[in-house]
């Protein structure tokens, strides 16, 4: 159960170009040890998919990277700089780390266009017209350009999630975090979101994706991270992981989700 299998990925960039580094990270929720001695290095341009049973700490791991969750011990560095404490520096850093949530979290009182333009205007101090122009381009890119003037509640889940991706991209992030981006979607809407993410991966975006979509993991990931009980139990290329998982925990997990 505690067996850790690390496989060198031939595609991954050298460690010198590490973009996100977690060293010996620990976190507790009360008596629950949700992250246990997590060491993880994500290279620039790498797509890492995190999978595992619920309660394994994968969402928490994702949320610690932009400090939506604080950690008890250890170090997290993004592009060489340790995560700052709460304040202006942290806000500045978060602008460079895009986040996509399970429940979309679009600003309910703003139109789709305003959702994508707001961060640029308020955080990057881009003039409103320029920001809106870029927002329209991004909305076109994710395929919801014709919904720009609607409010989030008027859109389908899949459309809302694509707007949320555009909102994160508008800040020109160095890395994108996806916290179960398709888990709240109706089945027929999952693909439209995955396609946008796949395109992002092809364009070279560094991505950390917590998901239950094994198809996406297979086709888009450079590396699959399997978590259980707050630990990274196994990491390998998707090919290796799905055809020959090494740990019993991973074998058990895969047998449960793949044989339906």
């Amino acid at each position: 159960m505690t067996e850790v299998v690390v496989t060198k990925d031939k595609d991954s960039a050298p460690a010198a170009d590490a973009l996100v580094v977690l060293e010996n990270v620990n976190k507790h929720f009360g008596p629950l040890h949700v992250l246990q001695d997590i060491d993880l290095t994500i290279a620039r341009g790498e797509v890492v998919v995190v999978i595992g049973p619920s309660g394994s700490g994968k969402s928490t791991l994702c949320r610690t990277i932009n400090r939506l969750e604080t950690i008890d011990s250890g170090v997290i560095r993004i592009d060489g700089k340790p995560l700052p404490a709460e304040g202006r520096d942290l806000a500045r850093l978060r602008a460079e780390v895009g986040m996509v949530f399970q429940s979309f979290n679009l600003f309910a009182h703003k139109t789709v266009l305003q959702n994508v333009a707001l961060g640029q205007v308020k955080v990057r101090k881009v003039p409103r017209r320029e920001a809106e122009e870029k927002a329209r381009q991004l909305l076109d890119r994710v395929g919801v350009g014709n919904q720009a003037d609607k409010y989030p509640a008027q859109l389908s889940g899949g459309q809302q999630q694509r707007v949320a991706i555009a909102r994160a991209l508008a800040m020109d992030p160095k890395v994108m975090l996806f916290d179960e981006p398709t888990s709240a979607l109706d089945p027929e809407m999952i693909n439209e979101v995955l396609e946008v993410m796949q395109q992002l991966a092809r364009d070279g975006m560094t991505m950390v994706v917590v998901t239950h979509e094994m198809g996406f993991a297979r086709s888009a990931a450079n590396r699959v991270l399997f978590m259980a009980d707050g630990r990274i139990v196994e990491q390998a290329t998707p090919e290796q992981f799905f055809t020959a998982p090494k740990s019993d925990r991973a074998k058990d997990f895969l047998s449960k989700i793949l044989h339906h």
Binding site: L68, A91, R94, A95, N105, H109, G119, K122, R167, A168
Partner: peptide
């Protein structure tokens, strides 16, 4: 709470999050 989390994630400060996103709602 997701509204504030989303605002903080795009890099808004506490005051911006409160003034732009939370208070209007």
């Amino acid at each position: 709470v997701g509204q504030a989390e989303a605002a903080r994630s795009v890099g808004m400060t506490f005051t911006q999050t409160l003034g732009q996103i939370v208070l209007p709602q």
